[in-house]
Every structure is written in structure tokens, then in C-alpha cells.
Amino acid sequence: MTSDTPAGRRFRVFNRRRSAPSRMRRRLGAAARMLAALALAGGVYTAFAPGAFAEDTPQLSASAQEGKALFDNSCISCHGRNAEGVEGRGPSLIGVGAASVEFQVGTGRMPMTRQEAQAEQKPPQFDKAQTKQMGQYIQELGGGPEIPSGDLTMSLEENPEALAAGGELFRINCTSCHGFGGGGGALSSGKYAPSLHDATTEEIYAAMLTGPQNMPVFGDNQLTPEQKREIITYVKMQLQEDKDPGGLFNLGRYGPVTEGVAIFIVGITILVFAALWIAGKS
């Protein structure tokens, strides 16, 4: 901190001193430089970053906020905060869409009872309004497929071919798991395709659109919305409302297995008793 010349002394402020500055000065200087750098970086960032216009939490609609509250109560333990998913417990729900939520929650499959091969249908835990709110939340969170509004079946007066076309599509795409009668069928290792006998039009549409559990996704480029409606028409009008022309009991439409059971339990049993009766009359 020593200087030889007055001039040097005068410009001392601007010139670097030969000797090391005092500890206090060093600290003050560092702080000032730090502040300046921070102000600069912050300023540039503020000026250029798009984040300046984003809010730190998305602005949810009122119903989505209700949905978020429900989600945070019932779904968060497996699907994680902000539906990001939890490793080994539940997948991320970003992008699954409201259709998926409405199917899984609306049929009682979610919340799941336990981790197993496949979530089973059970009485739903949430009512329709709550399900819609949760769907809305997931939709606003990450987007994804939605169930279209309006009638999901086709009117047979306007489209008489819809039933046959739907049947054809059903046999090509659906029977390999759900069976020709829509009664459901087994998949590997405890997985299964459920029965379609009490599925609603929305559920069938949502299932095709989102591929819940072990079902493949039938996106709109695989089955057009038109074709989906045809399939739903077939399931609704033919499989669910068909009055089984062959008799009072359709044996579940499971094919030869139940037919074989019936011939022994009904046919052979009655006739063996008839034989006992006839032979006993001597």
C-alpha cells in the first residue's frame, strides 16, 4: 500500500496498487463484482429467457384444480407429484389424456387395490363429476386423447351397414382376446381381456383410444372414429342387446366348454335318473 509519486497517488484509485489490498477492501471488491455479475446475468436472462412469461405453476381451470386435489389425495402415491410417475409403482400420466383417466377411474380399475397382473374392474371410488375433474387435471397437465362428445353409436336407420361393418371390425380386431361373444378371455400370466357385456359406449371408446391395462391402443389412424363407432354399435346392438335366438340360456356364449358341461350336468344327469326310474319299475 505504498506509493512513490503524488501522481501515482492521485490516480491511486484507478491504478492497481502494487501491494496487496487490505483484506477488507478485497472482500468489498469481490462483493461488488459479484453483485455486478449477478445483475448482468440476471438482466440478460430476464431480457431473453421465455420463462419470463411463464408462471411457475400452470394456471389450472377450476375443475382441474378440484381434480388436482383429488389426485393429490388418492393417486399421488403411485403416480407421483404432478403425475410424473413413481419408478416401480405407477407410470407417468403425462400425455395419457382425459379418456384414459375417465376409463380407468370410471370403471373402478383405479385406484388399484394392489400391484398385480392387471387392475380389476370394481365399484368406482369416485363419482362421475370427480372422475371428470381428475380427467380435466390430467388433460390440462399433459394433454392426450379425449372421448368425443355426442352419440358414440350409429343410428341404424341412417347407416344400415354399420352393424355388419362393426361386426366385421369386431371379429378382426377384438375377438382374439374378448371372444366372439364379447365374454372376455384369458391372456398370459393372470392377465385377461374383460367381458364387454356391461361396458358403456364411453368406456369402449376410451378403451380403444387409450389401450388400458393390457389392451393395445387403437389410435385414430388404426381405427378411424367412424370405425370405432361401428364397433361400438355392434357391441351395443348385437352383443349386449341381442336376445339369443337359440334359447333361454346362452351358456355365457363361451363356446364348446360350457356346452360340454351342460350336456353332462343336464342331459346325462336327467337321463341317468330316468334310467334309474325306468329300471326300478319292475
Binding site: 361386426g167 366385421e168 371379429r171 366372439f180 361373444g181 352383443l239 339369443d244 335366438p245 337359440g246 334359447g247 333361454l248 340360456f249 346362452n250 351358456l251 356364449r253 364348446p256 356346452e259 351342460a262 350336456i263 343336464v266 342331459g267
Partner: peptide, 14 residues
């Protein structure tokens, strides 16, 4: 049995 129990519903098989 033929009257009461539906068997082999061929119309569903396509």
C-alpha cells in the same frame, strides 16, 4: 335342451 340352451351360435362367429 335344444329349446332351452343355445348351442353353437354360428352367427356370432362370422
Amino acid at each position: 335342451m335344444a329349446g332351452l340352451f343355445q348351442i353353437n351360435p354360428i352367427w356370432l362367429f362370422g
